[in-house]
């Protein structure tokens, strides 16, 4: 387990930098995480991030892109615009969750 300092706080992360402690995350941290990977958070981003947080709490795993589309109703196309190139991983990172494990 590695500890890194983000926004003046000690945060537990894995080897790649994804947060490992669900409760260390809050909105302010999300803004910082997003800024670090070049994402400007808008309401549309927050909708996806809030869904990821809630779904992880309920299901115990990070939702895949398809799940965000089918369950939260955010079109896949939009997710690629909001979180360019690697939407599933970028969303997970900003939401302070591990990378999704599912294939689809």
């Amino acid at each position: 387990m590695t500890v890194t300092t983000i926004a003046g706080r000690d945060i537990h992360v894995d080897a790649e930098g994804f947060l490992t402690e669900y409760d260390e995350w809050d909105d302010d941290l999300a803004k910082q995480l997003a800024e670090q990977i070049g994402v400007d958070l808008t309401d549309a981003h927050w909708q996806a991030i809030r869904f990821l947080r809630e779904d992880f709490r309920a299901q115990g795993e990070t939702p895949t892109l398809r799940r965000v589309t089918t369950v939260a109703g955010i079109p896949t196309k939009d997710l690629f615009v909001l979180f360019p190139k690697k939407p599933a991983k970028k969303m997970a990172y900003i939401a302070g969750l591990p990378k999704p494990h599912g294939c689809v």
């Binding site: 890194t4 000690d10 790649e16 930098g17 994804f18 990977i37 690697k86 991983k89």
Partner: peptide, 15 residues
């Protein structure tokens, strides 16, 4: 110094 060390950020290959 952990306060000044760069944060560990995943590399999404954007650059």
């Amino acid at each position: 110094d952990p306060a000044t060390a760069p944060a560990i950020v995943p590399n999404f290959g954007d650059d």
